[in-house]
């Protein structure tokens, strides 16, 4: 028999492995030149998609806990948050390194002209301190303030949705689905707070 603690550890490892599958597939596609006509954009958008997906799954854990009345979902919040941060970091890296080719001039030209990039940048700037303070040690050190700080993830998820919504040319169905999901996940929390 595996102990409960070992079981959680195993599931966490499994979650990390599964979470890295999209990255490995994208890496393979990049190396094999299978990203299509606009390779950088395909890579950039896919990484952004995965960052948003993991952010949303992470946000869904507390509602799942509320609904199922079980504590286990909360154990996976850190991993999901860090997976989201991992994909968001690669998303930003692809933009700066490949799309802008590290050109400061291009950055200065493009970013102010694109409200959606500004919102995306803001999202990432929110995620950085959250990832930095994700360790158990930091959690202890910051004590109560840690919880307050990490509430910022709701804001980051919202700005991530707006970032997506703002860049789309015409068909806004995808970003609206994410935005709707965000609303539902937040509503469950708010409802819980009100009813105690």
């Amino acid at each position: 028999m595996i102990s409960a603690r070992n079981k959680t550890r195993l599931l966490k490892t499994l979650l990390i492995c599964v979470g890295l599958v999209p990255f490995l597939l994208l890496l393979l596609a990049t190396l094999n030149d299978q990203l299509g006509a606009n390779a950088i954009q395909t890579l950039h958008f896919s990484l952004g998609d995965w960052a948003l997906r993991f952010l949303m799954i992470g946000l869904a854990l507390t509602p799942i806990k509320i609904i199922t009345q079980q504590a286990w979902p909360l154990r996976y919040r850190r991993i999901l948050g860090l997976l989201a941060f991992f994909y968001a970091s690669l998303h930003v890296l692809v933009y700066v390194a490949l799309d802008l080719s590290w050109s400061w001039a291009a950055f200065v030209d493009e970013v102010p002209k694109s409200p959606y990039i500004l919102v995306g940048l803001l999202t990432y700037l929110i995620l950085v301190p959250l990832a930095m303070t994700s360790t158990k040690a930091m959690q202890k050190r910051l004590a109560r303030r840690w919880l307050t700080l990490h509430k910022l993830v709701y804001v980051a998820a919202l700005t991530a949705c707006l970032h997506y919504l703002w860049l789309v040319k015409l068909d806004i169905s995808q970003p609206l689905i994410y935005l709707g999901l965000w609303l539902v996940l937040i509503s469950i929390r708010v409802y819980r707070l009100k009813t105690g």
Binding site: T30, L35, A37, N38, A39, I40, Q41, L43, L98, D99, S101, S103, A106, D109, E110, K113, S114, P115, Y116, W166, L167
Partner: peptide
Amino acid sequence: SHPRWSQSRERVLGASIFTPK
């Protein structure tokens, strides 16, 4: 510029991922 993005550069389709715009 387009109201939502710059038009100063363009991505050349089919170029390697290390090719600047």
